[in-house]
Structures are given as C-alpha cells and as structure tokens.
Nucleic acid binder design. Structure first.
Lengths: 338, 338
DNA sequence: CTGAAAGCGCTTACAG
DNA sequence: CTGAAAGCGCTTACAG
C-alpha cells in the first residue's frame, strides 16, 4: 500500500513536508502544495489510521455502548444508534458499536487499548456499572439516559417528569377526570429504568394537584401479555376516559384491544402515548404522543462528546440536559362522553 | 499509560520477551512467564490497539455497512446488526457501524485507511455500488442479501423463492384456491430490493403449477397508506381466502384492517407473513410467518468473513448460501369457509 | 519555507 | 530459552 514516503518521493519533497502539506499545520509554498496534492491523487494515498493514531493519540473513532435487553423495546434503539452514528460522521468520527452484555468490561477493554477517543453510553440505568469505569477512563463520555448520580458527566435525556405532567395536563384540559397510566413492567424499573417512575411519579403528583384520578399500572413488555393487561385495566376502571401509555408494546397492542372491546378512539376513549414519530408511523398508531426524541438525544450526546474530546482533559463543565417534551398531536384526545 | 516497556522492566526481561510471553508465540520459561503475567496484572497493562495494528496489519475490527433507507423497515435492521456485532465479539472482533448514505465512499475510505480487517454488507441491492469497491479492496467481505452478480463474494440470504413457494403451498394444503400477495412497494424493488420479486415470482409460478389464483400487489411501506392499500385489495377480491404478506408494514397494519372490516383470522381469512419472530412478538402479530432469520444471517456472514480474514488473501472459495425458509406456525392458516 | 530525525508502542525476524 | 534491533507509517518538535 502507498504510504506518505511514496507521496513525498513522487512530489520530490521530504516526508515531513508531505505531511505538513496534507495537514496544513505549517505554511507550504503553493508549488509544493500542488505537487503533493497531485502525488496524493495519482497514487491514491490515504493515511494509515493505525499509524496516525499511534503518532497522535487520536483515533477519530468513538464507541457507542448500548444495553440491548431482550425484553425492552429493541426496535426503538435503532433511532438512537443512527442519531449517534450519523452525527459522529458529520463531525469526522466513525463509531464502534458495542453490544456486549458486560458493558463495564467492554468499556474498560476499549478504553485501555486506546481504540477510541470517547464513549457514548445509551440506555443508562439508575445505577449503571459502566459509570465508575467511565469516570476512571482517560477518554471522555456522554450519556443518553439520566443515572442516579450524574456527577461530572454530560447527560442527555428526555424530561420524563415534564412529559408525565404534560400528558396529564393535556387530558385535563380536554375535560378528563379519571385516567389510566400504563408504564413499563416492574422488572424494567428494578433493572434501573428510572425514566419509568420519573414519568409516573410526576404524572401522579400532577393528577393530585388537579384533583383528578390516576390509576397507575405496569404493563408487560410484549405480546400477548400486554394485551391482556390492557383489558384488565380497562375492565377494572370502566369510568376512566383517558389512557396514558409509557410502554411501547402497550401502544402497539392497543388498537386490537380497543377494536375487540368495540371502542373507538377518541370517541369512546382518549389516548396519549410516549414514543417516537417513526414508531407511530410504522405501526399504524394514530395516537397523540410525546416524542421520545431518540435521534436528537443521540446527536446531542455526540456533539457534547466531541466538544469534550476537542477540549482535551480539562475540568469539563459537565452538565445534565433534559429535553423538553413535545406532544405530536394526532387527534386521539377529545372531550369525554357525557 | 503503561506500555510493554514498563511491563518488561517490572518483570526484569526484554520487551521482546514480554511480548512473546503475552502472545505465546515462542516458548518462555515458566518463571519468566509468571513474572510477566504478574507485571501485567500489577500495572494493568493492555496493548495499544493502534501500535499493534501498525505492527501486524491486523486491527481486530470489522466494518458493518448498513443501508438505512427511511422508507424501509428500520426496526428490522437492528436484528441483523446485533447478530453481526455479537458474533463478531465472540470471535474476537469489534464492529465499526457505518450508516453513511454513500456506502461506496465509506467503504473506500475505511478500506484505504486500514481501519478494519474486513467488511460485512447489509441489505445488499441487486446492483449495489458498494460491490465494485469491495472487490477492489485488499480486505475480504461478506454480504447479507443476494446481489445480481455475487461472483467471488460470500453471500448469505434467506431463500426467498423457496419462501414464496412455501407460503403458497401452505395455503394450498389448507384448501385455499385464491390468494392475495402483498409485497413491498415498487420503489423498493427499483432501488434494488430483489428479494421482493424473488419471492413474488416464485409464488406466482407455484400458484400456476397448482392451478390456483394469486393476485399480486405492492403495498405501501408505512401508515396510513398501507392500511388503505390492504382495504383496496380485499375489496377488489372478495372471494380471496388467504393473504400472503411480504411487507412488514402491511403485517403491522392488518389487525386494524381486519377488525374494521369485521373479519377474524383465521375464521374469515387465513394469513401468512414473512418477518422475524421478534417482530411478531413485539407487535402483537399472531400470524404464521416465514422467519426472516436476521440474527442467523448476520452471524453466518461474520463467520464467513472471519474465516476469510484468517485464511489471508487467497483464491477464496466464495459461495452463496441461501437459508431454507422456516414457517413459524401461529395458527393463522385454516380451511377456508365452505 | 523545508528537511532530518526522533518517537508513538507494538511485533518479529535475526542472533545468540 | 532470551535479547537487541529493525520496522510498521505516521506526526512534530528541532534545526536551519
């Protein structure tokens, strides 16, 4: 393979001059610059990434650590991933996708071997065992998902409490006074899915403030269980007029459940969910929903990470950024009957 | 950061001896081996990936090139991706995920800079502009998806013609004599999604052989269009008793469509799809379906790729492997109403 | 404005 | 069984 020595020889200059001509890190005479550029073109030269990394301690690669739990909603993950990879590329970075179960071990291995310039952690848990490793690593990191202790870390997440309040407010404004909230299953919470209770707690609080009833449930994460759960909740509260869904599987299952009960939305019952627009489009879901902003969160995390990388090891002014929820209105909330 | 020189010093040996003790590439006395191992442990040594890549021309990284088309079924992609990343890790490789629109350009850039040892191409099109670049690259590759000209490449794909025949046979065996096939939209075909017609052509052929009627349609790839499409097809052929779906969005939309028409499955109409088990589980789809085998295809491609990498540049006995379709029975095919 | 040389951290013939 | 040295392909002080 052609290396910078070949380019230098072809251009009739030294290797250092060829290197500087390429990097632009010192002034080069126009003629030399042109000769080098020509040689690069003629020979089809591309710098060797490993050699460059060794010389500069920079790889132009970031690692993306996901947690892919078989009972969580895998398809939603892809939107976060593409947000990260696309934005990283725009900023000049490639992305190493890490899907190992042992995220902490993977982070340590990749950090120690200097394969990447930084880390993006997805689906961060309340108590996330990757965080101590990240804090001890020489490379910076950025998180998608708010951990219990975000100290010293750049964190991006949807403002789930605000989302919970917004969902209740929206229903209240339309005249609803008794609601059912369907969250993710309890084991998701126990595993560290703090967003579940962050949304639910605030929704409950807000309902109390407004003096309305909120029945708070955990639904299963897959079929057919969640369908049965939904039927159970509806059976238990026939006077409830609105449904809040913080559970993608429940949203996907709801059309069938309503149809089987002979209910129309929003005629018989109003619904508001929390999932991505893509998800809604793909799965025929015509429910208004708080967008999960997966793409934006991924992009923001990468931007913060690249800023940290460029800044170098410094007392980084780490910050937590909670993105304000936005409801995408699909007309599934109406005034309740009677 | 601690390097192999530090290890050597701590162990009281030369750097080369330390290196050999780690790689096991030559016999080392037990005492020396133990001292080196101890030094590695004490110092927390991990080899520098860039330096190793420079010295060995091996990175232990593979690149995974996806084509993420906004109107194709993105969530399904994740299963292919995880099949690749997980199997790669098992075999000692990390995975660079590449999502750029310009796949050919990305392949060239990554190949020329020697960032990876090989490539896995996902969602390969009939005429795929990444293939000429791959054929010219010094690193080997493996494809998921059968291109028009697979010559010299390791290719893995579902046997779509066999799947088409199987779907028709299954319906025929249950007594159905008039079927509707809903494929992906035409622009997916035009863009190179050959699997669409590979399945459809064989299904049509098989229907002819069996002397039964097959109405062949392309449905939209998203909501609400595909729902309208389905209603249109059902309106046009009231005597059809079976539905074949080679279109994920159609499968996701069908429950609502049937409910709105007051039809039950399989009481009023039989259905067989083609999508992954995960997809079915997540989206409440109780239709029997040919599994798309995403995870397996991803894993097989990685295995073939790693074999090529290990074999080194040789006259690789490239081969095309079409995985036999398997129908996962969910009881959605019954005898048609008398 | 340019060149010669050192160095990044490994691996691996070569020599003993 | 072990060591000294060259080399992988870059970048970047140092010197002019």
């Amino acid at each position: 393979m052609v290396n910078i020595g070949d380019v230098a020889r072809a251009a009739g200059v030294s290797r250092s001059t060829a290197s500087y001509a390429l990097s632009g890190k010192r002034t080069i005479s126009p003629e030399v610059r042109a000769r080098v550029a020509e040689a690069v073109r003629d020979l089809g030269y591309t710098p060797n990434a490993g050699a460059r990394a060794l010389a500069t301690s920079r790889t132009s690669v970031i690692a993306l650590l996901g947690r892919f739990l078989s009972d969580e909603f895998a398809p939603a993950m892809l939107h976060y991933i593409l947000g990260v990879t696309n934005r990283a590329r725009e900023l000049g970075y490639d992305t190493l996708l890490v899907s190992e179960d042992d995220g902490a071990g993977a982070l340590l291995r990749i950090s120690a071997s200097r394969m990447v310039d930084g880390f993006v952690l997805l689906n961060v848990a309340e108590q996330d065992d990757r965080l101590p490793v990240l804090r001890g690593a020489p490379q910076p990191g950025a998180l998608v998902g708010l951990p219990g202790d975000p100290d010293g870390l750049d964190v991006f997440d949807l403002d789930f409490p605000a989302a919970g309040a917004m969902m209740v407010d929206e229903m209240f404004a339309h005249g609803h006074r008794e609601l059912i909230l369907v969250s993710q299953p309890l084991h998701v919470v126990e595993r560290g899915g703090a967003y579940v209770w962050r949304l639910a707690d605030r929704a409950r609080e807000r309902a109390e403030e407004l003096g309305i009833i909120l029945h708070d449930y955990n639904g299963a994460a897959g079929q057919p269980e969640v369908g049965r759960d939904l039927n159970g909740f509806l059976d238990a509260h026939p006077s409830a007029t609105g449904l809040l869904l913080n559970n993608e599987a429940a949203a996907a299952a709801l059309p069938n459940v309503l149809a089987s009960r002979g209910l129309t939305c929003p005629g018989d019952i109003s619904v508001v969910g929390r999932y991505s627009d893509d998800f809604a489009r793909m799965f025929s879901l015509s429910y208004s929903a708080v967008d999960s902003a997966a793409d934006e969160l991924g992009r923001r995390a990468v931007e913060a990470l690249v800023a940290s990388i460029d800044r170098g090891p410094s007392t980084s002014p780490a910050h937590v950024e909670l993105i304000a929820p936005v409801i995408h209105d699909r007309g599934s909330i109406a005034r309740p009957r009677g």
